[in-house]
Nucleic acid binder design. Structure first.
Lengths: 152, 152
DNA sequence: TAAAATATTATTGTGTGCAATTATATCGTG
DNA sequence: CACGATATAATTGCACACAATAATATTTTA
């Protein structure tokens, strides 16, 4: 029997996951374009719609993005008048990231995005839940290996 | 009953998938560093180890990366003396991407990477296969929606 | 209390990912 | 055969993703 090499591309889970994630982000693009948001920006906005006036660190935790990514991203959102970046009075190292009125108002338009994504039927609801469960397990284990960064 | 919002971050499959993919790439990093390769570069090298002397398009298809990503990446691999980028004689639009001796020799060192990744036990083998199956389904469906780019 | 350790955000530098576009070559059609 | 359509790789411009580092503030320790 011919044993496939461990380096065989079709055996690489990471390629599957990575390309699927990128493809999924691409699928979001036309839906987010009318909102003038990229996918990571959409993530950040969702975090703020859930809980406004939070620190950069909180946003990083909720979105699972790193500060090196989030800091310039927040600057761009501020440039679009969707958020304000203020200094915290309790702790001057911190920023308080606050939605503007436009930022808050955008939520109602954004509510269509998950619906429209579901309409694409990229996966069945069951498959989606299973994919999420496995992805979460992987994320948790990978993060646990590097440090104790237990995040939501 | 309080119905969670469709914009609830914890319900976003895409966040799970995206963060898991990024975390997995990060897990590869220390293993690929001694080889002086990034993960996408590793993908390209794997494609060439499987089948040497191919076009850029073939590499894009096998790695599922776009030419805008692959072209500069190949230039950097050439800069590391791992590949040669030649013009095809049959069709002058095309490049033939060829492994150098160093490029070929690197394969044996790279064969440890999948083993070492498995040792991390980020998922069970069963979970891994299931994750791959679902990711593949998602990738296929997402790609099919944009065009008929049926790829391996 | 002073100094060391840690936390927060920001920056720097590099490599990606991708939409739109370009230059050139090849293919298809009338 | 000439021309229009398409393909290939490359480029441009923008937004990420992240490791390493830096500036400043806060917490911890002795």
């Amino acid at each position: 029997m011919n044993q496939p090499s461990p380096l065989n591309l079709d055996l690489q889970i990471c390629r599957s996951l990575y390309s699927a994630a990128n493809a999924l982000i691409r699928a979001y693009r036309p839906l987010l374009e009318p909102l003038d948001l990229t996918y990571p920006q959409y993530l950040v906005m969702m975090a703020l719609w859930e809980h406004d006036a939070v620190s950069v660190k909180t946003i990083c935790d909720r979105t699972r993005l790193e500060t090196g990514t989030v800091t310039p991203l927040l600057k761009r959102l501020e440039g679009k008048d969707l958020i304000l970046r203020e200094r915290s009075q309790e702790d001057e190292r911190q920023r308080v990231i606050r939605l503007t009125r436009q930022g808050r108002d955008l939520k109602s338009r954004a509510e269509r995005v998950p619906m429209e994504m579901a309409c694409m039927e990229l996966l069945t609801p069951k498959q989606g839940l299973e994919l999420q469960r496995l992805s979460e397990a992987l994320y948790r284990n990978a993060v646990a290996r590097t440090d104790d960064k237990g995040t939501a």
